[in-house]
């Protein structure tokens, strides 16, 4: 920031003193646990135990050779890629729509943003009711328009469980994309469109040559942010399917939970958590690099 800032005697003390409580909390709740989890991942922690003998990288070796892990990794990528790409497409479309002026736009915006605001457990509840094979409205509607001939078991079938989970995830989280893109869309100066109009650009050309270049940095940043968050999302999948049926929706965070708190193998759970974390760190590095560049450009 180019702004000037005051420096007076005593400011240094104030600066560090006011920061101390935050630093202490983050140290105790984030830094120390991260170190602890590395320690645990190197131990053979038995059922219900809190620690155990040191075994080096054995837990990691176990994870990398177990089929469950690779299935979970594959599921994670399907879940992340499916959710984020749909969220981005839907988010862009609706942001463009909400950027136009029409009567009751405020109401439309409130309705479209609502899923993001409601608690996840509520979203899960309502969708489980709608997905219900017998009393669910979804099967009824699809059957009455003839898309399916008999009720589907959306969440309990290995072929549709992941799709169903992605549908709920997209419905719940795409409004975030709408909010982010709406903000940047509204910052595009109207004169640019007026100039383009006079220069004879069609609506599509205006989108392609003015809107898209303008929103692209934010679009990519939002996609990356959604990728990171979707990657370690836990409760929506856990509450919808618990990772099942037959591991078909078990992503890495679900696997960590199952290993740690259902099988009570904390060492192995810690190892998987750390691998998840490493993948995330790569994504985060990209994110921070991106953000630095975007800030530098402003």
């Amino acid at each position: 920031m180019a702004e000037t800032h005051t420096v007076q005697p005593g400011d240094r003390a104030i600066a560090y003193l006011t920061l101390t409580p935050s630093a202490a909390v983050l140290l105790l709740l984030v830094a120390v646990p991260t170190i602890t989890v590395i320690g645990i991942s190197l131990q053979d922690v038995g059922f219900g135990e809190m620690s155990g003998p040191w075994i080096g990288l054995e837990n990691f070796a176990w994870a990398l050779t177990s089929r469950t892990f690779w299935t979970a990794l594959k599921n994670t990528f399907v879940w992340v890629f499916g959710s984020v790409s749909l969220e981005m497409m839907l988010g862009l479309g609706l942001a463009l729509l909400l950027n136009r002026t029409f009567a009751l736009r405020g109401v439309a915006r409130a309705i479209i943003l609502a899923p993001y605001l409601i608690p996840t457990v509520v979203a899960v509840l309502v969708w489980r009711y709608m997905f219900h094979d017998i009393v669910g409205i979804l099967n009824y509607m699809l059957m009455s328009v003839g898309l399916i001939s008999k009720p589907m078991v959306w969440l309990a079938s290995t072929s549709t469980a992941m799709l169903s989970v992605i549908i709920v995830g997209v419905w719940k989280f795409f409004p975030f994309v709408v909010i982010a893109l709406l903000g940047i869309l509204q910052s595009i100066p109207q004169e640019q469109y007026e100039a383009a109009e006079i220069d004879g650009a069609s609506a599509f050309q205006q989108f392609w040559r003015i809107t898209l270049p303008h929103i692209l940095p934010v679009f990519l940043l939002t996609a990356l942010l959604r990728t990171i968050w979707t990657f370690h999302k836990f409760e929506i999948i856990y509450l919808l399917t618990g990772g099942g049926p037959l591991d078909s929706t078990t992503t890495l965070p679900i696997l960590v939970y199952i290993k740690g708190f259902a099988d009570f193998e904390l060492g192995r759970a810690a190892a998987i958590a750390l691998i998840t974390f490493f993948i995330l760190v790569v994504l985060l590095a990209v994110y921070f690099g991106f953000m630095k560049r975007a800030e530098a450009r402003q």
């Binding site: 646990p33 991260t34 990171i228 370690h232 960590v256 904390l266």
Partner: peptide, 13 residues
């Protein structure tokens, strides 16, 4: 942006 599942194990302990 840290995953919850990472620190839930040590915090549980």
């Amino acid at each position: 942006m840290l995953p919850e599942v990472l620190i839930v194990i040590p915090l549980y302990i």
